[in-house]
Design a protein around this nucleic acid. Sequence first.
RNA 1: UCCGGGGUAGCUCAAUGGCAGAGCAUUCGGCUGUUAACCGAAGGGUUGUGGGUUCGAGUCCCACCCCCGGAGCCA
Length: 432
Amino acid sequence: MTTYARIADLPSLEASAVTVRGWVMRTRSSGKIGFVVLRDGSGYLQAVILKNEVAPELWECFKGLTQETAVAVTGAPRAEPRSPGGVELAVTALEVLAPSVDFPITPKEHGTAFLFERRHLWLRSRRQVAIMRVRHEVVQAIRDFYYARDFTLVDTPLLTGSIGESAGTLFETEYFDLGKAYLAQTGQLYLEAAAAALGRVYCFGPTFRAEKSKTRRHLSEFWMVEPEVAWNDSDANMRLQEEFVAYIVERCLERRQEDLKELERDTAPLERITPPFPRLSYTDAIDKLRAAGVNAEWGRDLGAEDETVLANQFDRPVFVHDYPVGVKAFYMKQNPADPRTVLNNDCLAPEGYGEIIGGSQREDDHDLLRARIHEQGLPEEPYGWYLDLRKYGTFVHSGFGLGVERTVAWICGIQHVREAIAFPRMMYRLYP
RNA sequence: UCCGGGGUAGCUCAAUGGCAGAGCAUUCGGCUGUUAACCGAAGGGUUGUGGGUUCGAGUCCCACCCCCGGAGCCA
């Protein structure tokens, strides 16, 4: 009877002969000894074939193996320090389950365009597998964090009417007889409604921005987790953020060491990610930038380079809060202590990764909010239900959005968010 | 959208306006502990597309297409 095993389970198996099914990564041979490196999704395994100890057909079969051939190898697992992974299989039987001819992604270097055109195959590489595992951990950490704190997950719509952050960057589609629908840029406005029902809520899903962005930090479709909390002010909002970010990083350090090692991520900077995070008002940030020789003007939004200059002054994420009214969204609450500013914050990751969170206390005064909608030239009608929330027991509340791909890219130490999602959607890439 | 860089073998890249090249991959041969194995040999080209200058264009000029990096915007 055949005992099938996953590679990850081999070290704890007592069996004298097991069969592993997987794909050939590469083969090496030294005349009378052959090596096959296999992957099966659970791990990597070196199998050894000795020409003089197996049937000639088996040796011929080994010589015919090509990259990504699906195989079943049978043999005795044993500890072997010379083998990558520490375990080795001495092969007694080898079966080709499905051939693979001219696999395009070779062990040598490729350009990013070539690789992204073959993203469906590139995913099989060790590095991409490690990134996907870290992403998986980040996602699970997010869910566990909010579950443990009694937040309720509320799924917000992806198809929306004309509502969101700014009108110029929406993906548009026909919606029956009701005219245009738009792909959601955020679930926040809906979550504010849910917060009045459940207190602590969050949504987690894909969001869409039709911005013609071509940078390492932008995707057309990205995943965002957005908590919204009744009775939290801006200060409590930032405390939640620092706990949250520190938890995600800690979980990855705790459970994904192997993957971070595969990615050659120096984990020392991640070990330092513990609350509290430093806080800097926008006004102080402008002063700091000027002190650093940057030409910064109060009232203008911070650029990517400004953020990097600021973030580089700290060894953990930094909050920049209370931006000028003019550069921020209509729903952010005006700062009672300084009406020129709003009670918002960005969270900038260190090591040049920049903004991973944008959050704010929400404007809870009906008339002020309505005035802001008009100020920004937005039509009032689609926001009618949103204004309603300020008519029926309006309440102090705050929330934020964390970009999953940016967070994963930072934790993995990779240069571009497009590798932080299995099938990235970018301005110039819709396939595969 | 703007600024910059690029497009030559399956891949990554060379080539002063003058014979189209290398490494890897592939195929064949050799090798009993390989770690992106190594050694030897062979096959492999409409130089992104269309025009132009020139005795001669991968190289210079014009247009277009595509890719990469950055900016703005944002998570």
